[in-house]
């Protein structure tokens, strides 16, 4: 496995912690939102925004930028935390999450939020969109990459497999899907609600390069993204095994925190646990 400097690992781990702080605080203030799936994906998203992505917060529409999409749009607070932390918009906007007239809608809206490359919220659509962006890059001869965050419950949508087939068919090696495999969805455990396993085998069968990692291990995350960039002739999916609610003791593995905001007291405790200043 590739070696990454302790400085880089520490920096990205701390960024992930910071994103979690913003997520908890934002959702608690809004009194609604989806903390669990934002916290589970925070490490894989931090590695992208603060290391891997070629992007410029001052030029959100830069034609050569890498595209990052959140197909699991309910993790919008995590996306907003990363964009705000990068400087796409002032962090003071966090306080207006889900308010009428806010640039930070309950689910991502590309017309309202700088850096949001595509609107989402209705599950199952983002991979198809990512395919379109990857095809556009190919016909334009551009070398940008397209990353799309998928939820594990989301892959129950049939359209995901239409898109998986198309990405394999068109050999979209400029595309990298990131699966937040936290094992829980609103109604319960994936395996009880509608079991999508075996997941890696399914993607392989559709012509994908599959990389399985611990989605909270920063070295593994960085190595996965680097390896994905070197694979030619097929798209890559990084399947990150994660813990829903990661970083907050009482939210970890808790189905109840899929779409419920923490109370003021819970928020205080969560911020303490995360070490948010």
């Amino acid at each position: 496995m590739k070696k990454y400097s302790p400085e880089l690992i520490n920096k990205l781990t701390d960024k992930a912690r910071l994103l979690r702080c913003h997520v908890v605080e934002m959702i608690a203030r809004a009194e609604s939102g989806h903390p669990g799936g934002s916290l589970s994906a925070a490490d894989m998203i931090a590695a992208l925004f603060f290391h891997k992505l070629r992007h410029d917060p001052l030029k959100p529409d830069w034609a050569d930028r890498d595209r990052m999409l959140f197909s699991k749009g309910h993790a919008a607070p995590l996306w907003y935390a990363a964009l705000g932390e990068c400087g796409y918009f002032p962090k003071s906007e966090f306080a207006r999450l889900r308010e009428c007239g806010s640039i930070l809608q309950g689910h991502p809206d590309m017309l309202k939020t700088p850096g949001v490359n595509m609107s989402s919220g209705s599950l199952g659509q983002g991979l198809s969109i990512a395919n379109g962006m990857a095809l556009a890059g190919r016909i334009d001869g551009k070398d940008y990459r397209v990353y799309v965050l998928l939820g594990d419950g989301e892959i129950q949508e049939g359209q995901i497999w239409e898109a998986a087939m198309a990405a394999g068919h068109y050999s979209l090696d400029n595309l990298c899907a990131v699966l937040d495999f936290n094992g829980l969805q609103i109604d319960g455990r994936l395996q009880d609600v509608m079991n999508p396993e075996p997941i890696p085998e399914k993607w392989r069968a559709f012509g994908w390069n599959v990389i399985e990692i611990d989605g909270h291990d920063m070295s593994q995350i960085l190595a996965a993204y680097d390896d994905a960039g070197e694979v030619k002739g097929m798209p890559t999916i990084v399947i990150g095994k994660t813990v829903k609610g990661k970083g907050v003791s009482f939210m970890e593995h808790a189905i109840g925190f899929h779409g419920v905001a923490p109370t003021e007291e819970e928020c205080k405790q969560a911020l303490e646990e995360l070490g948010c200043g």
Binding site: R67, M118, S128, I129, L135, A136, A166
Partner: peptide, 21 residues
Amino acid sequence: FNMGVAEQNLINTAAGLAACG
């Protein structure tokens, strides 16, 4: 681009292409 018999994927792939100009 032929998307095969998959109309939902058809529309959203078009959306991704449109988002790139």
